[in-house]
Amino acid sequence: MSALRFEKLTAGYGRKPVITGLEGEAQSGRFIALLGPNGCGKSTLLKSLAGILPVKSGQIAHGNTNVRLLPNALRARTIAYLSQQRDIVWPLSVREIIALGRAPYRGPLGKISAQGQAKIDDVIARLDLSEYSNRSILELSGGEVARVLLARALVVDAPVLLADEPFASLDPAAQIQMTEILKSEATTGKTVICAMHDLALAQHYADEIWLMKDGAFIAKGTPSEVLNDTNLVQTFGIHPPEGGFNLPRIAKA
């Protein structure tokens, strides 16, 4: 299994870089929580890894492949990206939205292969979206839309999944369910890097935490190594609560 590596990565908007000289290696099978205050460069890092934001300098590799040299469609098949934006203007059906995740595999006539259709069916079933699949995305609640967009990212079936605060503004149960889905993706051998703000979710689910501030990494390691008093004071200006970050448990229905 291949790792996603980046070296001396500098990127940003306009002339001023937001992240400078970042280095990191995300092993396959790992669920990595990317933490840090708003504006610290989490989104910039994920967008530059996903090919959305042009990289000013540095290397990005997946295994032995230089990601920056890959044609768009091949890069898209290697690194999937889940945005925090959930504003969809057209009343497309849930299935149509999810099928957009197969865009990197599309032939000249835009047909989705039988294998692609099977992947879509599989993800729809796994995320419990079967009853919605013909409904318009505009009729769904915020939590349901978030789940549909997660399904859209999963059908890409890329070895790397980058998620940028995909649970922002979701209720606690939905956040836990979505994190569990991302975690289960990692256990199938994928690399998952997820920017988030919920320290309890990160502590509970992440294999690794990458802590960022002002465009640089403050610490990287397991949750217990990273979420200590010194790091949290330095990054967020907070002390960890007594007894650690506890996660609410989902009540059995």
Binding site: G51, I52, L82
Partner: peptide
Amino acid sequence: DTAQSLGV
């Protein structure tokens, strides 16, 4: 952003 990540 998402369209670009899908190769557009």
